[in-house]
Design a protein around this nucleic acid. Structure first.
Lengths: 202, 202
DNA sequence: GTCTATATCGGGATAGAC
DNA sequence: GTCTATCCCGATATAGAC
């Protein structure tokens, strides 16, 4: 466990992360991961005993990346519209920094929902608090009446979908112009924030 | 090409559709598809020469299912808010009738974007017309100013994501209560329609 | 058209040298 | 720790009987 070993181990994890995120568990090949890491196939088994264990390590790391400052924002006391705005900006930032993560998580969660969702629960995200704040704001008349869960999913939808569905949307609405779509994504936080707040403003 | 052959061929396609949609191209096994269809593995190769060709047939059928009344709505002359409302209801209906389609299409399109997107182009969906109507409505002051493409993707996001991300969201926000989530999805068209129109109403 | 049996191949996993 | 060589299984695909 000297630094060389640590480096190789991390190198493998990063390479595996890229391949798994692009191709999924069943689509990824161990040979491909080894090539991506610039090492031999056998070394994968030396560090991680099996493809399944390697995948689980990658998935855990992916969950960690997706969770980061989000908890802090959700748990901070702040006026509702400010909190929504900050959440959307923070979340879009994470997604843009990890564009393959959403599809990866969603797809693998469909493949093996129970086992993989447990990895999420460890992160300790708790939606009840923000749902409660939605209800309080409605009672105070600060926002229109809307089911808190629908509002929560609306926000997530507007952030996640354009990133996850990029191969589809870029071709469909942008003539497959990658730069144009990137610019579109970069202005997305502004647009979503305004859109949501307009929708719920009393 | 008597009716018996036709039945077996369709039976295979339906079975393959279910398995491919759930597990994806690389995750699906020919044996599993044969079992699902209640026939022998070799028959798959008799009707469709290879796994790849079978997959392509399934994908084409999936595209057809996802497109149906949508073109008509988009191309019909109608006041903007009415058209949005009808589109959202129609689209949510299709999604609820084919809940595995969205993830399937999105995932496979990431795997092989160019080849598979061509299957979409054949359907002849043309977004420019609805984008143009958005712009006209803005100029007439019928709706707030918003980038037409952002608006289009907002609508799609709000419809597709809750269906595609069901395994995640049902566990995350509904304690994995399937009936509750189904009820949530059933009221979704109303909520989305109201949400969008509130967001863009001048 | 539908089946059984089998060929062929790719990929995950292991053994063992260094 | 890292490599080469190899095992072994599963999965696609084919041959051929009925």
């Amino acid at each position: 466990m000297n630094e060389q070993e640590k480096n190789t181990e991390e190198e493998i994890l990063d390479a595996a992360s890229r391949i798994f995120q692009k191709k999924g568990m069943s689509g990824a090949r161990m040979q491909e991961i080894a090539d991506e890491a610039g090492i031999n196939k056998s070394l994968l088994h030396y560090y991680y005993r099996s493809k399944d264990k390697l995948f689980l390590s990658v998935f855990r790391q992916a969950v960690k990346n997706l969770i980061p400052g989000i908890r802090n924002i959700l748990f901070t006391d702040m006026p509702l519209f400010d909190k929504l705005d900050r959440f959307i900006r923070e979340y879009m930032g994470v997604l843009l920094g990890n564009p393959f993560l959403p599809m990866f998580i969603l797809h693998e969660l469909q493949r093996d929902p129970d086992r993989l969702f447990k990895e999420f629960q460890k992160a300790g995200i708790e939606p009840s608090r923000i749902l409660h704040q939605f209800e309080q704001s409605m009672e105070k008349g600060e926002m229109r009446r809307i089911s808190p869960r629908h509002l929560m999913i609306n926000v997530l939808s507007l952030c996640v979908f354009p990133v996850a569905a990029r191969p589809m949307m870029q071709r469909f609405l942008f003539d497959n112009d990658a730069e144009a779509y990137q610019a579109f994504l970069n202005e997305r936080a502004d647009v979503v924030s305004e859109f949501v707040i307009n929708a719920i403003r009393p």
